[in-house]
Write a protein that binds this DNA or RNA. Sequence first.
DNA 1: TAGGCCATCTGGTCCT
DNA 2: AGGACCAGATGGCCTA
Length: 364
Amino acid sequence: MAWVPALAVGISVISLSARQENSGEICYLLIIPSKSTMLTLPFEDPVIMDTQFGASFPRDCVGETKVNKQETFEKEETLSHTMDEEDSEKDEDEHEDGHDENGLPRRRGPRKKKMTKARVDRVKMRRMEANARERNRMHGLNNALDSLRKVVPCYSKTQKLSKIETLRLAKNYIWALSEILSSGKRPDLLSFVQTLCKGLSQPTTNLVAGCLQLNARNFISDQINTEASFSGRSTYESVYSTYHSPGVGTPSGPSVDAVKPFRSFNYCSSYESFYESVSPECGSPQFDGPLSPPMNFNGIFSLKHEEPVEYGKSCHYGARYCAVPPRSSIGQSGRAQTELHFPYDIHLRGQFYPAQEEINTFHN
DNA sequence: TAGGCCATCTGGTCCT
DNA sequence: AGGACCAGATGGCCTA
């Protein structure tokens, strides 16, 4: 028995839903709260469901289970007059012929306990507590997602990735890093970005590209100013001017259509040729499952992370990252750690990004 | 205004 | 019995 307190004040019509067993179909009950009670009907109510919900409920229930107002009011009136337990002996609405007052067959099986005032209050209280717990749980989940946002590429406080995009990017990131570690090869930026962006929405792709400096503005400026305004042009930019990705632009910059800096790019073939393995997305639809990338953390990489305390708390993470050599030994740079954002400080091997500050600014 | 994203409520299920 | 987890529903907010 699931009595539902209608706590939503001001709602004139409450829709309840229940998934029918084995069918997944949704059935609706439209309940009008009565003046005397805010309780809605239990699904098992024989008047409404007649039999056990889901057992014999018609598949075409949608649209057919809407209880008319009058019936609902009558039912709720009945509910609102629920007696205390001590009155249950008198009970009731059952007639000698085995039918209730509505002429419907009396329900068999164990009689349900009466909803006393105290029980109703208790149910309400438990519902409120459950809501609070659920809120806290979701807040914890969101906090974890925020933490995840900070350790995947392209963290931005002002332009937060959505939940789903965060998870997708994290998945791609893990895959890419694992491939790098297992293969021991240094990726070109484009392939890396393509891996990261696989399956992401266009705005997120733009964001990632912007973070990783694969943006249209640079490309165009390279095209226009072929004299290369800076001498230390990175290999990434060489690749970048060779490969083209559809619609990669600055996160908040010119529109894709307006710029169109890239030609189409076959991600899958590029990925597979680079990583010498099957692309997670192209090779198998079961990427999330058994084809998870091999884990190898004795490599040379370290992640940017802004919450060392959190990692320190975890033996799992600690074991991984304690084995990573000091950043200063990896190469390049005496740049502050907070400036760096994996993997570019590592992969460039002395090829410094001319717009690194821009990236850092973006991250901040 | 439609669509995406999100927070919240809610009932069901599973587990302790 | 109660908590954790899950998924559906709903309404609000924002943006193209």
